[in-house]
Computed example of a mutant assay.
Amino acid sequence: METRDILSGAKSFHKIYNQIIQTAAARHHLSLMDADIILFLYNNPDYDTAKDISYFRMLAKSGVSASVESLTGLGYLESHEDTADRRKIHLKLTDAAAPVARDLKRTQEDFFERLNRGISEEERQMFSDLLRRMMDNLKQT
């Protein structure tokens, strides 16, 4: 596989995924960043701080902070201080966010079903293993 194919494929994947999630977010009058945060918290309940979101989703801290503030104002997020470290703020989706989160999750699942159409479980596992090894190679430098 050529370098340009890898880079072009990654860029296309990201662009199409964002377009699909953006469309779902728009149904709920939310931004793509808002949708990313809702999906992240819905999919990763053990990682519940703005720092976690910024780190794992590779999003700007300022954008995450603004979106957290907006989602809190909409009643979709609530926050509470960590009992051991008051500087750490935990985020939690509210009941009001549940229908939005389920819709976004369904959209995300539909995207991945479409992406994996015609690809066997063995092929998916092989690709996952190769990608993991490539990422390990990058981390070693």
Rank of each mutant, 00 (worst) to 15 (best):
M1W: 10
L7R: 09
L7A: 09
G9R: 05
A10N: 15
K11P: 02
K11V: 15
K11G: 09
S12E: 15
S12H: 09
S12L: 11
S12M: 14
F13K: 13
F13Q: 11
F13H: 15
H14T: 15
H14W: 12
K15N: 15
K15G: 06
I16R: 14
Y17F: 15
N18T: 10
Q19I: 10
I21S: 02
I21E: 00
Q22T: 12
Q22M: 04
Q22E: 12
R27P: 02
R27H: 13
H29F: 06
L30Q: 05
S31V: 06
L32P: 01
M33G: 04
M33T: 03
D34T: 00
D34L: 05
A35E: 03
I37W: 08
I37F: 06
I38S: 02
L39Y: 06
L39P: 01
F40A: 07
L41S: 00
Y42F: 13
N43F: 07
N43H: 06
P45S: 08
P45T: 11
Y47A: 09
D48M: 05
A50F: 09
A50Q: 13
K51A: 10
K51C: 02
D52Q: 01
D52N: 13
M58L: 11
A60G: 07
G63Y: 08
S67C: 11
S67K: 11
S67V: 10
E69M: 10
E69C: 08
E69D: 11
T72P: 01
T72S: 12
G73M: 04
L74W: 04
G75I: 00
G75A: 04
Y76E: 04
L77W: 01
H80N: 02
E81M: 04
T83I: 07
T83Q: 14
A84Y: 07
D85A: 02
R86S: 07
R86L: 06
R87G: 06
I89W: 03
L91M: 03
D95V: 12
A96T: 04
A96Q: 07
A97K: 02
A101K: 00
A101E: 05
A101G: 03
D103N: 01
L104E: 12
Q108L: 02
Q108S: 05
Q108D: 05
E109Y: 05
F111A: 01
F111V: 08
F112S: 04
E113M: 03
N116E: 11
N116M: 03
N116Y: 08
R117L: 12
R117Y: 11
R117D: 13
E122M: 06
Q125K: 11
F127D: 11
F127S: 10
F127T: 03
S128Y: 10
D129C: 02
L131Y: 13
L131H: 09
R133I: 15
R133D: 14
M135E: 03
M135A: 08
M135L: 11
N137C: 06
L138A: 13
K139R: 13
K139V: 01
Q140S: 02
Q140Y: 03
T141R: 12
